[in-house]
């Protein structure tokens, strides 16, 4: 399973999506400035709070990022390694190790956003913050990506299963990848064209009514947090 929105009514669900994006962005900025043991410890506490507000399990989220983790863990090891004695310089590995911790914290904050924010709210943020046709293109286009993703994931998974059964694993990897992509793409253009007709039948327009997003009193703590993180980042950087 991948990280997806789950309907709910946690405090994080009820925040305006813009507050959540601001917290994420300022969190990344602060994490870059305070990539020190004490800084990261404090930020970890903050992340624990955010995950609790989103009722998101840290372990489960980390499991969902398992593909990314090996690279994150490899970086400090590779940086510490040297050619010749003493082979491994601990001092060289400390910076990258702290950076890896930072990556994991950012991924967890991201997980909390994804779990608690429905597509239409995210689309509204894009359409409302980028004016005119570029905003409409990005907002609707991103919403269509959400719409197509599960269909294509199913396609790909089905094809892979069929390959496992019929071709076994002996076939050359290039051949397997090629067959998979051909099968996934076979209907891609037809599918896109049909979808385009459906959009036109419903008057797909450059200037639609946008979904509502509204700041409320409950956004104040989140906005205050974002402001504090931003100030901390600026102060720490200068």
């Amino acid at each position: 399973m991948t990280l997806v929105y789950e309907p709910g009514s946690t405090p994080a669900h009820r925040l305006d999506p813009r507050s959540k994006l601001l917290v994420q962005a300022t969190f990344v900025a602060a994490a870059f400035v305070y990539t020190t043991p004490r800084g990261l410890l404090a930020l970890s506490g903050l992340v624990a709070g955010m995950l609790a507000a989103a009722r998101t399990s840290p372990l489960r989220s980390l499991w969902e990022f398992r593909v990314v983790l090996p690279v994150v863990l490899a970086a400090p090891i590779l940086e510490g390694l040297t050619f010749g004695a003493p082979w491994f310089v601990l001092a060289d590995a400390i910076g990258p190790a702290l950076a890896s911790v930072r990556v994991i914290l950012v991924l967890l904050v991201t997980a909390a956003y994804v779990r608690t924010t429905p597509v239409r709210e995210s689309r509204a943020v894009i359409q409302r913050s980028i004016p005119g046709r570029p905003g409409q293109f990005l907002g609707m286009g991103a919403a269509f990506v959400f719409r197509f993703l599960p269909v294509l994931q199913d396609d790909v998974a089905r094809i892979r299963n069929a390959q496992r059964v019929r071709l076994g694993t002996e076939r050359r990897v290039t051949e397997r990848v090629r067959l998979l992509a051909v099968a996934a793409l076979a209907h891609a253009f037809d599918r896109a064209d049909t979808f385009a007709l459906a959009l036109q039948a419903r008057c797909f327009a450059w200037n639609p009514t946008l979904p509502e997003v509204r700041f409320g009193p409950r956004d104040l703590p989140a906005l205050a947090l974002a402001a504090a993180l931003a100030v901390a980042a600026v102060v720490g950087a200068t």
Partner: peptide
């Protein structure tokens, strides 16, 4: 193949939204 959104309400509202 023709739905534009992931949830029922968002999809049904697509046409009226385009009408502004």
């Amino acid at each position: 193949d023709c739905f534009v959104a992931a949830t029922v309400g968002a999809d049904v509202g697509f046409g009226p939204e385009n009408l502004g």
